[in-house]
Amino acid sequence: MEGRREGARLELVCPAGTPAALRAAVEAGADCVYCGFRDETNARNFPGLNFSPEELAESIDYAHERGARVLVAINTFPRAGAEEIWHRAVDTAAQLRADAVILADMGLLAYTAERHPDLRRHLSVQAAAANAQAIEFYVEAFGVRRVVLPRVLTVQEIAAINAAVSCETEVFVFGGLCVMAEGRCALSSYATGKSPNMHGVCSPASHVRYQEEDGELVSRLGNFTIDRVPAGEPAPYPTLCKGCFSAGGKRGHVFEDPVSLDAATLLPQLAEAGVTALKIEGRQRSRSYTQAVVASFRRAVDAQAEGRAIPAGELRRLSEGQTTTAGAYRKTWR
């Protein structure tokens, strides 16, 4: 049983889209920072984001000198005929002494387990391992040491998983919220030809257009209208699954409201459920955002570990659309 040690402090895993954000996260109290290479090998393949091998080398040194760890996300699904690109990414992460790689693809997990047995392997949320048996399969087949749980589970289900698996678990606590099982969604691909699994992007800005029509601001993704708001009102970014549509004669957010996840108040329950690490989403966010969110969660984690009340709601202003949800962690979400 490798699960969280009884009474151990929850580990804080923080996003870094740039070397500057990585430094900010470490300074603000991150235990771990996760990041990716500047290419299609990671699931936040956005323009202007991510790390060259040289930047990663420097950043890993920076983090290690300050007692923080660096996890490298190589969590898209390698393209047939071009697996080499993903293999090289894993080789580079190993060579630069990354503390772990975060992987989703079975072929890439097999490659890493064989070529770099000592490189710690975390299972990305993109692998969508949603129950104890699926997780144990990854542990047994590829020596996975930690699994990032899909955002489709309740706290009770997470507790049951932790009681049954022989690896650590990590859960998302703040930031963007996929309502679909991650790694199993081709919605973006259907509208734009670009997908999270293949290209590391969802609802990419390159395919977004805003236009004013009849006093409304229309946001379109590819050839589809994702939302319409009265001109002058703030228009949420047209992420496909947060769009406003019409179904069964009803107009509304069919899949999810433009909310983001904030599970800060659930920290005691997540700790009780045996979770090892808390993950903050947002590698695409600014350095100042990263700094503020990490510092706030540092306070929350420390408060939880010391048995004090969790400061609630202080991050709300940083959330998309100004509203937050505890998502699937509460059963009523379903």
Partner: peptide
Amino acid sequence: LAISGRCY
């Protein structure tokens, strides 16, 4: 195209 924990 997608599967979710939530029933739409």
